[in-house]
């Protein structure tokens, strides 16, 4: 799980990148609180072969990355 709420880009992508490099997980949950971070993490996830689902609650976004 990567909790990048409160952080501005590019930090959320960097945190997800570090997590993926560490263990190449088949699934990963990412929390962010800005649409720009959702889009940027989506692009990173796609570049690494993950599919992504996003759910929004009260301005916070839960992203589920899976291979």
């Amino acid at each position: 799980m990567v909790d990048a709420r409160g952080l501005s880009c590019p930090m959320p992508v960097v945190m997800v990148q570090n997590e993926v490099k560490k263990g190449n997980p088949n699934s990963l949950t990412v929390l962010v609180d800005a649409m720009v971070c959702v889009e940027n993490v989506k692009r990173y996830a796609a570049s690494q072969g993950y599919s992504v689902t996003v759910t929004e609650e009260d301005g916070e976004y839960k992203m589920e990355l899976s291979k």
Partner: peptide, 12 residues
């Protein structure tokens, strides 16, 4: 960098 999602808010 763009492919990796390193994009500024202004792009969106």
């Amino acid at each position: 960098l763009a492919r990796m999602g390193i994009l500024p808010e202004g792009m969106y």
